[in-house]
Design a protein around this nucleic acid. Structure first.
Length: 362
DNA sequence: AATTCGGGGAA
DNA sequence: TTCCCAGAATT
């Protein structure tokens, strides 16, 4: 970094951010709670995806107290479709912690705030710098890409230790006067100028400071090894309805994939020893302790997660008697169904059921 | 250090 | 198709 002019770089970056930053709902003020909510939502999630969720979430839960006192079911429903659902469970847990042990004031030191659930190294730095003006590094994917190009750093950003290298660099070059705009400027630059595939170097406000632009290596950086292929799991799912048109749903376990979301009865199809339909029926009878029948296949669908793929065969079925209901098993009307949070995969199942149902009427 | 957590937009 | 996004928790 011998020839790297830190002061000039800070000024160019911050001045550019002041003029070119996007108008975003979470930039209207620096309320630590709202900054917090936005940063959790933005983890591994695009700005355009987050905007409507953020607006709705803040409308429903405008402050620490309202989220602390909210029903978990309502909170999960507000997160429905956004993914990584442990984020919002951890957020509410941490907000309750702040409500009870910090007098409702988001702590302003790295030691305290990083102890809160769901707040890791990146979010610690982003909240502290944006909400409180504390010069802590906030190293996300954007920052690693931008800095790897500017300083020509060839470490593999897929490795966990590489993030620490960038944090150390940021500590050296962050603006002490305006750490908020410095951090946000780096991220904004990565989002709209220094993009992954074809960066707009000719429009870049810090082009003069960029080593990889000088070298013409900007398209080779950052170095990032790719991950392995995902497993495919055959699944069978069924929408069971009663004679008075109520639907059987159940709640997923408290940990693991899609924790605490609701779903339609389903099984992973193991072998072709018995038919998928057979496996689905015996699973449902044992789980819900009711007599039932599985009827026709409505359709099939594929749902892709980051680490696995579900290949789901969708059935419809009928219940002859009502199951015992509980906190995790319910029989609901079509209208009541809308109150429950479902993963997108099961929203697709429900959509197929409705399409099949309407086609039967014609 | 590697894996597990969702979902969708863009190239 | 592949990539990867304002990452954190768990193993």
């Amino acid at each position: 970094m011998k020839d790297f002019k830190i002061n000039q770089f800070q000024q160019d970056l911050i001045t550019w951010f002041e003029h070119e930053q996007r108008i975003l709902p979470w930039r209207e003020d620096q309320d630590p709670y709202k900054v917090w909510v936005s940063e959790i939502m933005l983890q591994q999630t695009r700005v355009d995806t987050v905007i409507p969720y953020f607006l709705n979430f803040i409308k429903q839960f405008p402050n620490i107290e309202s989220l602390a006192n909210a029903d978990e079911e309502h909170v999960l429903k507000a997160w429905e479709g956004l993914g990584y659902y442990s984020r919002v469970r951890n957020l509410q847990s941490a907000v309750r912690e702040v409500h009870e042990n910090y007098g409702g004031i988001v702590p302003n030191t790295p030691e305290e705030i990083s102890k809160l659930k769901g707040i890791g190294p990146y979010t610690t730095g982003s909240i502290l710098s944006i909400a409180y003006g504390v010069p802590e590094p906030a190293v996300d994917g954007n920052v690693m890409r931008v800095l790897s190009r500017i300083l020509s750093i060839w470490d593999d950003i897929a490795k966990p230790k590489t993030r620490k290298i960038f944090e150390a660099i940021i500590r050296d070059i962050i603006s002490k006067e305006n750490p908020s705009f410095f951090n946000q400027g780096l991220m904004e630059l990565g989002a709209i100028v220094c993009t992954p595939s074809s960066p707009s170097c000719l429009l870049c406000p810090v082009q003069d400071h960029c080593q990889s632009f000088k070298d013409g290596t900007q398209k080779e950086l950052p170095v990032k090894t790719k991950k392995n292929i995902v497993k495919e799991l055959p699944m069978a799912a069924c929408v069971f309805v009663t004679d008075d048109d109520k639907v059987l749903i159940s709640k997923r376990p408290e940990t693991g994939l899609l924790a605490k979301l609701w779903e339609f009865p389903n099984v992973e199809v193991v072998k072709e020893l018995t038919s998928p339909k057979e496996q689905l029926m015996s699973f449902a009878e044992e789980t819900f302790n009711v007599s039932l029948q599985v009827d026709d296949v409505i359709g099939t669908l594929q749902h892709v997660f980051s680490h696995l793929t579900w290949n789901i065969t969708v059935y419809k079925g009928r219940l002859s008697n009502e199951p015992v209901q509980s906190d995790t098993v319910k029989l609901v009307t079509l209208e009541e169904l809308k109150q429950y949070a479902f993963p997108v995969s099961h929203q697709k199942i429900w959509k197929q059921y409705l399409e099949d149902k309407s086609s039967q009427l014609v």
